[in-house]
Simulated assay, not measured.
Amino acid sequence: MKLATLQAQLPNFKIRLLTLADQEALLALEQSNPRYHQYFSPEPLTMTEIRHDLTAHPDEIAAAQKQVFGFYLANRLVAVLDLLNQYPQEQLLFVGLLMVNQTYQRKSVGQVIMTGLMQAALQSNITAIQLTRVTADDGVARFWHRLGFEDGNQLFLPLKAGGRLAVTTMTRMLQ
């Protein structure tokens, strides 16, 4: 996804690609959503995990296919969007994470970002957007369903602390 294409659809935000230099701001944003992290680990979120979030991608794709966009209002990071371009197929876009700072939740920020992303994706010849969500999180399910995403398969992610986490794939066709 080209930054300029996304920025044109979302002019009220300052959008930029996040780098390792943005670790502290990203940590603060993710810490504002403690429930999300608790699905994956009983331990507190660490800077090591933030570094991993900024760089991790599936082995079968190039590092350049991953982008982590930061969305700013009044010079404050209010949301993060982690994307994998051309994954799992060429004309698909995979959302690894959309997280809005808790202060800005339920104020249409996530909906506006995703609507802008869908418009930018259409301009970029993307045919569908996919993601996985934590199956047990009903509020997140309602958010994605309102945006036209449909449930797919349920998968189980192994957790570092042992056990597995149920996640549901979701897809939104754009054309």
Rank of each mutant, 00 (worst) to 15 (best):
13 F>Y: 15
13 F>N: 11
13 F>S: 09
16 R>A: 13
16 R>T: 15
16 R>L: 12
20 L>M: 14
20 L>D: 15
20 L>Y: 12
20 L>F: 12
21 A>L: 11
21 A>K: 11
21 A>G: 14
22 D>A: 15
22 D>L: 14
23 Q>V: 12
25 A>S: 14
25 A>V: 15
25 A>C: 09
27 L>A: 09
29 L>F: 09
29 L>S: 03
31 Q>W: 02
31 Q>P: 04
32 S>F: 01
32 S>T: 07
33 N>C: 08
34 P>I: 00
34 P>Q: 07
35 R>T: 10
38 Q>K: 12
39 Y>M: 05
40 F>A: 05
40 F>T: 07
43 E>L: 11
45 L>I: 06
45 L>Y: 00
48 T>A: 15
48 T>P: 00
48 T>H: 14
49 E>I: 00
50 I>R: 00
50 I>Q: 03
50 I>C: 03
54 L>T: 02
54 L>S: 01
56 A>I: 06
56 A>T: 07
58 P>H: 03
59 D>E: 13
59 D>P: 03
61 I>P: 01
61 I>C: 05
61 I>L: 11
62 A>G: 08
62 A>N: 12
63 A>F: 00
63 A>T: 11
64 A>R: 06
64 A>Y: 04
68 V>R: 01
68 V>S: 02
69 F>V: 01
73 L>R: 10
74 A>C: 14
75 N>F: 02
75 N>I: 00
75 N>T: 00
76 R>D: 05
76 R>L: 06
76 R>G: 02
77 L>I: 08
79 A>G: 11
79 A>M: 03
80 V>W: 03
80 V>L: 06
82 D>H: 08
